[in-house]
């Protein structure tokens, strides 16, 4: 038997998949649960093939994939100085593209698609919401302007989002933490 079939393909990083379900009787942190951690391509697929598709989750649920050791929350030391590239999906995109966008995002992260900028990647979150689903890639350092822009451009290219029609914004977690109500945080960068 070829060694290729016996040896799993290692990933550059270990990743943890988290699932959030909005139970209002519990604290936010209690609703965020680790599902599994993996560090090979085969184990990534074993997990992905096993779980419910994002589009089939109830409103209020999230999937998050973060490097092992980083919690999917602003307050984590690896996240708090950074921000996120955020896509607010249109109604049509929610229906047609959510699952493919989410998978493409996962492939970008586990495959280290951002080259040397991949070190600044913390994770990704998909949020299923009645008002419109959201997809975001989180990075760790707001000061890394060049890296943030390269990540944004590469991400937009991988998702196949048309350049002039779709503008993607990057928001600092520090800004998101202090906004009131449903006002969106300002975009520090756009692509």
């Amino acid at each position: 038997i070829s060694p290729e079939l016996l040896i799993k393909h290692p990933l550059q990083n270990s990743w943890t998949l988290w699932f959030y379900k909005n139970d209002k009787q519990k604290q936010w942190e209690e609703n965020q649960r680790e599902i599994s951690t993996f560090d090979t391509v085969e184990d990534f697929w074993a997990l992905y093939n096993h779980i419910e598709a994002a589009s089939r989750l109830q409103s209020g649920c999230d999937y998050s994939l973060f490097k092992a050791g980083i919690k999917p929350m602003w307050e984590d030391t690896k996240n708090k100085s950074g921000g996120r590239w955020l896509i607010n999906l249109t109604r049509q995109q929610c229906i047609n593209d959510l699952d493919s966008y989410w998978l493409e995002t996962l492939l970008c992260l586990v495959g280290e698609a951002f080259d040397e900028q991949s070190d600044d990647i913390c994770g990704t979150v998909v949020q299923i919401r009645t008002k419109g689903d959201k997809l975001a890639v989180w990075t760790g350092d707001l000061r890394n302007n060049d890296g943030i822009l390269k990540i944004g451009m590469k991400y937009k290219e991988r998702l196949g989002l048309p350049n002039k029609v779709c503008v993607m914004g990057y928001q600092a977690h520090a800004d998101s933490m202090v906004i009131c109500g449903s006002m969106p945080a300002q975009n520090r960068f756009t692509v």
Binding site: H9, Q12, L107, V110, G111, E112, D115, S118
Partner: peptide
């Protein structure tokens, strides 16, 4: 140092690997 990078098609090819 070296980085383990997988192209999109490489990851997809392994999706149904035993």
């Amino acid at each position: 140092g070296t980085r383990i990078i997988y192209e999109r098609h490489e990851l997809l090819q392994l999706r149904n690997s035993p």
